[in-house]
Amino acid sequence: MDHSPDLPLIVVIPRPERGGSVRLQPGGCELVLESVRGGYALLWSDGRTSRRFALGLLDEGRLTLELRAPRLPVRVITRDVISLVPGGRLRGYLQVPLVPSLVWHRDGGPPSILIELPPRELAAEWDDREGHSFRCPSSLHARFPMRSNEPCAVVPVVLSNPSTTVASPPHIPLQLRDAELSELRSTVVVKPRRLRWVGERFAMDAPRDGVPVQP
């Protein structure tokens, strides 16, 4: 049995021998892959609920556990009330939960997502105007890195208020991509987001290439 306490973006799950198992702990969850007669059994638990999957895998190919960005737009609800005076700026870091996904990599073929294990912090919604989206809470951190046992991505944000009114955003809209996820100082970070308050909402500028912005 292999034990992996770290939170890398991609973890290759070795094939257990017949009758054996592989145990992974991505964040607060626990994942056990067992080789049973006729296939593989995957047991997942987050401490409150557990799910069991039956997998039929080939000998050719590999199975990975990847932390992927949420596929839907995310509305980050800050636990701190944000107020920006006209012309004011605010910098900080937000945390967005990542989705542990079991991905099958076939030799010479595109990867296939077998199982997605969305965390509880990501609450999916459907809106009449915008469609599907995630909603998650986060604090506006001032320092980087911050310690977290949950698989999440750190999003540096720079909020500005070029308008003539005080900005008090209800949430901060974000859209993450898997390609921009990177590991830095034992955390997963994305490119910083620059958001401008244009009146009742934020407009996002193009992300800056490179390392996150140091506030």
Partner: peptide, 24 residues
């Protein structure tokens, strides 16, 4: 959530329109 729904929906749309080609 503390955010009103109409105001919360617009930034997402703005984000989506900013980078439409990056999402499936």
């Amino acid at each position: 959530p503390a955010a009103p729904e109409p105001a919360a929906a617009k930034p997402v749309q703005e984000t989506a329109t900013t980078k439409p080609a990056q999402e499936p």
